[in-house]
Design a protein around this nucleic acid. Structure first.
Lengths: 260, 260
DNA sequence: CGCGTTTTTGAAGCCCCTCAAGTGTAGTGG
DNA sequence: CCACTACACTTGAGGGGCTTCAAAAACGCG
């Protein structure tokens, strides 16, 4: 009811320039050609970043807005004991939130997991866009709140589900999110993430993640191998996980794409 | 560096009308008398709500902004199995976030834990305030992002800390937050919350929470009894928990108050 | 005082962790 | 092309932390 309406439903492969940020925003808001152009140019001069590289460190003074255009990134916090907790996975179109604009210091670290194409939008430019383009301001705010709902879903996962449900839930989420930005083809999602990284996101050890993945594989629900997630039976997996994707606030239109 | 500067540092008992929302915002932004007056009147006609009552349910269409003026509230999500996860504790001055304005449906349920005084600000009024008063817009945005950092701290708690550290960390957080809104006196914070509720927040059972609390009590660090938390040794407890309160983004000024 | 709820304590069990060794698999240099 | 290395994945055995089940004690409230 409240979502900026009149979505254009771009796909990554349908837009002239495949800018994931535009795809994501266009899926929920009606962007004018002018606004698309503005975003396009704001993401000019992207850079390629190798895997496992910090993009923004905890405690850094906040500055520009960082957008993932290709690849997989994350946010994490380290503990004194040396363990870490991944708090967020970032896919193409996702960006570090508006901490950048409002708060004075980063609370966690942002890093690549795979090689990434990354755009940096200077703070002044973001503030200008937000001030002059209400649709963009609202869209960024929207993205921010969706993110918050994802955090809460992860909390439920960590606090109240066992290991099998946890892994299943995360796989469902990543698959649906990937699908929404056009990354899924033939029930396969590129997902080059190690067991240790999954463990750090799920509050489990790499060893146990491995055992759980085997269980899910043997059950014929899904398979994670060689950097790709193959989703054999999404409904069944969602059932195992207790997954209800409404917290992702995706247009319904994006959900029926997964049927090949 | 980025925080709206020139804070006035109100305390609950120093302001003519003890409005926790104003206290909280005034601690981080320079409010003009006009803006204080606007907030004051926006919170007109608060209502008293009994304990354990839902204020806003998951799936509800979003509407007005709800502010806690007195008492303790929370947000939680239920799972199909009947278990629940508390994702947030709300103290005086805290409010349900801007979901209200931007998203179309609530993602979780907001409920009282103790009897509360609650103000409701109509959506139109919030939008008006945000549009005409940049300081207020920025302050709400700020509150929102601080909230997000708290969520992440909880995720770390759930994912990577054992039961003792978890309980200790939550107690540290609540104590420091309570102190920041002037709820702490003589090292004591009113905290009328059951073991079951703590368990639902920490991903533990009530039984185990009880055991952990005993440990912390016998260690002489803190005591939770009869609805009040007595903090005997905050530095030691913070050390046990690995607690670093910077994620709360409180003015440093609020932190030295606890040394009564 | 009596009742319902919460807290407390005990005993047994399971889930996930830890430690450890073995098996790929990709990249490097001979 | 094949060692060699580094790293991630896999599988097994044993242990510990938290849960579950159960019942008694304490508390709060009419």
């Amino acid at each position: 009811m409240n979502r900026p309406s009149g979505r254009t439903r771009f796909r990554l492969d349908e837009v002239g320039s495949p800018n994931a940020l535009i795809v994501k925003i266009a899926n929920v808001a009606a962007l004018s050609p002018v606004e698309i152009d503005l975003l396009e140019h704001a993401c000019d001069h992207p850079r390629e970043v190798p895997a496992h590289q910090d993009l923004l460190r905890e405690g850094d003074e906040t500055g520009s807005l960082i957008v993932i255009l290709r690849g997989l990134a994350c946010r994490y916090k380290m503990l004194p004991e040396g363990t870490r907790q991944i708090t967020e996975f970032l896919m193409p179109g996702d960006c570090c939130h508006m901490h950048i604009i409002v708060l004075d210091a980063m609370d966690d670290t942002m890093a690549t997991l795979t090689p990434c194409r990354v755009a940096t939008i200077p703070r002044a430019r973001v503030e200008e866009l937000v001030a002059t383009r209400p649709v963009l301001a609202r869209s960024l705010s929207w993205a921010q709140l969706v993110n918050q709902d994802i955090l809460k879903a992860w909390m439920v996962n960590l606090g109240r589900r066992n290991s099998v449900q946890r892994v299943a839930h995360l796989m469902c989420e990543l698959y649906v999110r990937g699908n929404a930005v056009g990354l899924v083809a033939d029930k396969r999602l590129p997902l080059d993430v190690s067991h240790a990284e999954l463990g750090d996101a799920l509050g489990l050890t790499a060893v146990h993640v491995c055992r759980v993945l085997r269980k899910l594989r043997l059950a014929g629900l899904m398979q994670l191998r060689a950097g790709t997630l193959t989703m054999h039976d999404l409904p069944a997996l969602a059932d195992v996980a207790g997954f209800d994707g409404s917290y992702l606030h995706l247009a319904a239109a994006t959900e029926d794409q997964h049927s090949v």
